[in-house]
């Protein structure tokens, strides 16, 4: 009799286990949609849309680091939103919502707010920041070449064509064909701190600490870099 009860209990055990709504590993957990403006929502948008080019944690990607408080302090919100929506230059695609994916206007707006909140340094009092865009007509090409040789030449070579054991060329015709004037200016202002290239405040190799580029220097160097660009179509025609 006792043996029969044991068998019965053993047979009923799986049924009882199956009937209990315990938290077994297989119990589905309802995914909570991230709240708009939250860090989770910001991360979701970044990981799905930006990570590929801008790198993990917003740094160390082939494209400009976005996790850079200086960059986020200088770039105007409307420019950031426009670039995210419509894209910029040759290789930055726009992420406007289409039937096949993309981000809504609200998501882009939340992302702009979120990036400044989570990766920016809004409490810091930034002084003497250069303007994001090149003022119209600004920049002296000759002076820019000299400034480049002085500040950037130790890594990129005095003429910008690169050094064998240093940084690469910034006057390569194909490189200049792929980047916009604004991208060149942004690189002069913000550098690539994640890759060892300083922003306009320095320190520049071989220069005294604290000696950086002035807004006029930035205009000039940008103008000089742009002046190195050649038309590939015209070159091909020749």
């Amino acid at each position: 009799m006792t043996r029969r009860l044991h068998w019965l209990a053993a047979a009923l055990l799986p049924v009882l286990v199956a009937g209990c709504d315990w938290h077994f590993p297989g119990k589905p957990i309802k995914t909570v949609e991230p709240v708009a403006g939250s860090r989770a929502e910001f991360d979701r948008i970044y990981f799905v849309n930006c990570l590929g080019c801008h790198g993990p944690e917003g740094r160390n990607g082939p494209a400009r680091p976005m996790n850079d408080p200086l960059y986020l302090a200088v770039i105007p919100d409307e420019v950031f939103e426009r670039v995210t929506t419509e894209g910029h230059g040759v290789l930055m695609p726009g992420f406007k919502k289409t039937p096949f994916g993309g981000l809504t206007t609200k998501e882009i707006s939340d992302f702009t707010t979120g990036i400044k909140k989570f990766w920016g340094d809004p409490k810091k009092a930034w002084n003497d920041l250069p303007p994001y865009a090149q003022p119209e007509g600004a920049g002296d090409v000759a002076l820019g070449g000299k400034t480049f040789a002085t500040y950037c030449g130790s890594c990129h070579g005095p003429d910008g064509s690169g050094k064998p054991d240093g940084a690469g060329s910034v006057v390569d015709k194909f490189y200049l064909d792929l980047v916009s004037d604004q991208a060149l200016r942004s690189t002069v202002i913000f550098g690539r701190p994640d890759l060892g290239c300083p922003d306009f405040r320095g320190p520049y190799p071989g220069r005294p600490a604290g000696q950086g580029l002035t807004p006029a220097d930035i205009d000039n160097v940008t103008a000089w870099l742009v002046s190195n660009r050649v038309s590939l179509d015209e070159e091909a025609a020749r």
């Binding site: 990981f47 799905v48 849309n49 930006c50 990570l51 590929g52 080019c53 790198g55 993990p56 160390n60 990607g61 082939p62 494209a63 290789l91 690169g162 940084a167 690469g168 060329s169 910034v170 390569d172 194909f174 490189y175 792929l178 980047v179 890759l195």
Partner: peptide, 23 residues
């Protein structure tokens, strides 16, 4: 858009090579 270029393929690259990674 969601798989990063591993940092080991970014460090020490020239500006042109970084543009190539973006391509």
């Amino acid at each position: 858009t969601s798989d990063a270029v591993p940092p080991v393929f970014v460090k020490g690259r020239t500006p042109l090579q970084l543009q190539g990674a973006l391509v």
